[in-house]
Design a protein around this nucleic acid. Structure first.
Lengths: 149, 149
DNA sequence: GCATATAAAGATAATTTAGTCTTTTATTTA
DNA sequence: TAAATAAAAGACTAAATTATCTTTATATGC
């Protein structure tokens, strides 16, 4: 459903939202290490997100990527709009060109509520709120070094 | 989540399950037309499914693809096992290598129930039952010629 | 001001997925 | 038995996605 690029981008932004500040920046290298994402790939994506004002950056020693309180007003869909070509959630799960409530594919009744739920989160929850939730719930953006049960 | 190949294959098999019989076969061309799938692409997939005993075929005039009652005992996951490399539903929505109930990503609680629901259908409902349900519910495998609302 | 660290930019390469084309083989029917 | 039809098989092409590499620009600290 999401491309690797989108997954990488979302996790990176949420990571910065959770951990960074103007005084505490993260270089592409450390994000790459922390989230186990190919360095040059995530570097590209981060650049793109800076240009789109989703995150911020500064060059030079002690430079890196970070989020401002203003950046945090965005939501996850802002990221997707930047990375993906079209609407990621529009295409029918079974590939029908015009699947919808009126003309449903055989799994529409299962897929539609899921899409709604995820869209609610991605569209209507700010990055800031999402990051707070992640802190509170203790969910993960990386499982580096976590021993699998 | 599903590749085009999988979507094409699933729709084709369900189409045959719903419409075909030993006496009423469908050529690759008519399936391609009916479901609006590239001819040579679906031809390849159908061949693959015949070899895997998911559907049946016969060559020559009045030949084509069809399903036997035995074929119909399969389920959708049988198709996916044939077309896709690994488990389509295993990968985490956010890309975490070991996301699960113990170590959930930030959307695991939304995604997991969906995966369960779709897997229940794809793994535990026979193609036969699925086709019956499609007939009863009037859901669509193709929207060719349906006027969009 | 110089060395260094880091993002920015752009070119290139590799892989996967999607789609097409051609030839061969089997079956049916006249 | 010949002609027609349709699947089977395999080679090939195209496009999208993923990933890498190299160079340039900019800010920092000494």
């Amino acid at each position: 459903m999401l491309s690797n690029a989108s997954k990488y981008a979302i996790r990176s932004v949420l990571f910065l939202a959770k951990n960074s500040s103007k005084e505490n920046k993260y270089g592409a290298k450390s994000i790459s290490d922390e989230l186990e994402i190919p360095l040059h790939f995530i570097a590209k994506l981060l650049q793109q997100l800076v240009k789109a004002n989703v995150i911020s950056s500064s060059k030079g020693p002690r430079g890196g990527f970070y989020t401002t309180t203003n950046d945090l007003n965005n939501n996850v869909c802002t990221i997707l709009d930047e990375i993906e070509a079209g609407d990621v959630f529009e295409p029918c799960f079974m590939g029908l060109p015009q699947c919808g409530d009126e003309n449903p594919c055989p799994v529409h009744h299962i897929v539609a509520p899921f899409k709604e739920a995820i869209l609610e989160k991605f569209k209507h929850q700010s990055i800031a709120d999402f990051a707070i939730e992640i802190k509170e719930d203790g969910t993960f953006l990386s499982l580096k070094g976590i021993d699998k049960k």
